[in-house]
């Protein structure tokens, strides 16, 4: 037994069916997994005890991620390997604990995130240059937030790392701002391309995956 509950951060991936569950439902899924795991999770005291789980950057429903984080506390000494092993035994397929450790950063330190967008479109090779072209200038979008819709240029918050064709799909690697105030949802870029170039069209399937998260400098990997 620890004298103080100890903070733990778990880096995890969210793929497959898990892509389609909301932040709230992820919370429920993790809560029941905690109980199945019988890990020494710290619960809040009082009327309605619950594990105090905090997640980093919420993910849009439909977006996969290889780099998610959640913080909680444990009441007993336990290794990161043990935590990952026991969580993976009880996580549904699509949810994987990758690493568990005592965090030295805050979620507030997150500044940027990488995404991979894959589009199943006709003649993807023909689209590489037009997409490069379209994303090289201003990227003006309508951003809807709680306070209303604003028209902004997200080009300063966007870096296009790569555009290529793989397995017949058009692949975009994007490096996007991920701060609370200037969060760029990859959906903005996709909607921008649909309006500019018509891809992905209504019948074209596409996937989005968050592949890495960085600190404010955009270079130091967040963990």
């Amino acid at each position: 037994m620890l004298s103080q509950p100890q903070k733990i951060r778990v880096m995890f991936s969210k793929t497959g069916s898990l892509k389609f569950i909301s932040h709230l439902d992820l919370n429920r899924t993790v809560k029941s997994a905690f109980l199945r795991s019988r890990l020494p999770i710290w619960y809040t005291q009082g009327f309605n005890p619950h594990p105090k789980t905090v997640f980093s950057l919420p993910l849009s429903v439909g977006t996969a991620s290889l780099s998610e984080f959640m913080d909680f506390r444990v009441t007993e000494e336990i290794t990161g390997e043990q935590i990952c092993k026991r969580l993976n035994e009880v996580f549904p397929e699509g949810l994987r604990a990758l690493e568990a450790y005592t965090p030295t950063t805050k979620f507030h330190d997150i500044g940027w995130a990488d995404y991979e967008v894959r589009m199943e479109i006709a003649d993807p090779s023909d689209m590489v240059d037009p997409v490069k072209q379209a994303l090289s200038g201003e990227i003006v979008i309508d951003k809807t937030t709680k306070i209303g819709t604003r028209t902004i240029d997200i080009a300063p918050l966007t870096r296009v790392d790569d555009i290529f064709v793989e397995n017949g799909e058009l692949v975009l690697r994007l490096h996007l701002s991920a701060t609370t105030d200037n969060y760029v949802n990859p959906k903005y870029i996709i909607d921008f391309l649909t309006s500019k170039l018509g891809i992905p069209g209504e019948k074209d399937d596409y996937t989005v995956c968050r592949t890495a998260v960085y600190q404010a400098d955009g270079e130091t990997i967040f963990r």
Binding site: G16, S17, L18, S22, V61, G94, D204, D205
Partner: peptide, 16 residues
Amino acid sequence: ERILKKVEKPARYTGG
């Protein structure tokens, strides 16, 4: 996936 992204509560349909 584009259908799942469009419908209400897609986790109703994915299984897993």
